[in-house]
Design a protein around this nucleic acid. Structure first.
Lengths: 245, 245
DNA sequence: CGCAGGGTTGAGCGCTCTCAATATAAGTGG
DNA sequence: CCACTTATATTGAGAGCGCTCAACCCTGCG
């Protein structure tokens, strides 16, 4: 379809800079060297996170945004009766915490592999953005993009069948890896089948079965967490219509 | 659950003011009379909209936000292969267009009944917010809330069965009507079964059948678009756990 | 080597969808 | 205001997709 592949450029930008993805994050909005310097000073610290550890929990009060330097994260929301839903997978260069500007984190962010994030204290970002108007506008843009991403997910959960959801999921990952300089045709999944299922609104057995079916059809090759896309064109057709790129 | 009832205070605030809901929208952030005056001047015009008319279309470039004064709207997204998904229903006092700050409207907004909106040219809002920092923070909050709302929907579409979805939907509407001074126990649906179905990730027949079942169970009474909630407690139990309020 | 977490696969069920007929409500034009 | 047309709702029968329950396998690791 599009939900995840076209509507959702999840990555913010490449994070191959020397200091922090924030710097890259702000380059595209045309900051001066001096302004970049101010930004760099704001970054209070880099936080290393072990696999399985939480970066923040739903309900915690909001203080900082986090730019992922390395690693792989999932965000989850929880309903009162205990149902959990994975709302996103996040990789280097992406910003976590945009749903918390209301005052409290609405979701929990957990590291799926060892990684490192940069903490961006929001108070300071906010006051800095008074001197740098384009920074405010950039935040609007990032938050807007997050809303659009969620809308794409809604479209997926509301309309697609299991095969299509998995196809959309794989194509989305593929594009994001490619945008970071990795192979678009094969990658290592950091999450379990259960987490994929939660994200896609499916049970883990269905995810597993659907992987197998896609493999039987010659579209992909799966070996545990390693996935190779053998026929990206064919996968796109699964989505009912080809998408861009 | 919570998704729609607890996590999602969709309404921004009551819109019973004399000029425009924007004024009310900004009262809670403690503006002075003079600042309010500045805000009022920004409101370029009120736009009346007939039922069925689009306020904006997905793909159009973004210029303004719109505060609903009266009426009832739906927002929809469209995938390339033509699948459509209703992403929200919006009533007086709510703000439309927050997903467009990236530059283009990502969804289409359509009036479900005759109504009127206030246009808020974003350029002017943006420059005004440089003098009124709390205005910027309020926008962050509103956008954040929108993200949280979508996450609640994801939780619903990913985890709930038809009955639960409809229960969550009705409770959410009930709360929002109540917050506007209308009855929480009975209201007139402005949307069709098909639109409800799209929003909830169900087919229209399933929506109709589920309405009937809830009626048989004595939880609600349905007569076309008129719905009365006879046993709100019972409806809450359907959600697997009672929610607040 | 044995254990634990994660993954695969099978059998059967049930919820929701599809297809279809009918009923009701909402417009439209005479 | 009423006959006609169209949109919207309701309800039924049957099929299919994804879920549940369960067994087994694989892989990594202490």
């Amino acid at each position: 379809m599009s939900g995840t592949s076209e509507f959702i450029p999840l990555y913010e930008l490449r994070a191959n800079c020397s200091t922090c993805s924030l710097r890259e994050l702000c380059l595209p909005i045309g900051l001066t060297a001096e302004e970049l310097q101010q930004l760099d000073e704001i970054i209070r610290q880099r936080i290393p996170l072990k696999r399985g550890k939480a970066l923040f929990l739903a309900g915690q009060s909001f203080h900082s945004l986090y730019a992922i330097r390395t690693g792989f994260f999932k965000t989850t929301v929880l309903s009162q009766d205990g149902r959990q839903q994975v709302t996103g997978f996040h990789m280097a260069g992406e910003l976590l915490g945009l749903d918390a500007l209301g005052g409290k984190h609405a979701c929990t962010a957990i590291a799926l592999e060892d990684g490192e994030v940069c903490e961006l204290p929001f108070m300071q970002m906010d006051s800095l953005s008074r001197d740098i108007p384009s920074l405010t506008r950039h935040f609007y843009k990032l938050m807007s993009r997050e809303i659009v991403r969620d809308q794409g997910l809604l479209l997926m959960l509301g309309n697609m069948r299991a095969e299509e959801r998995l196809a959309a999921f794989l194509l989305n990952l593929s594009q994001r890896f490619e945008a970071r300089g990795f192979s678009a045709n094969g990658f290592h999944l950091r999450m379990t089948r259960e987490e994929i299922g939660s994200y896609l609104g499916l049970k883990l057995e269905t995810v597993s079965r659907t992987f197998s079916r896609l493999q039987t059809d010659g579209l992909i090759r799966v070996q545990g967490k390693q996935v190779d896309l053998l026929d990206i064109g064919g996968i796109r057709i699964l989505l009912g219509s080809c998408s861009s790129t």
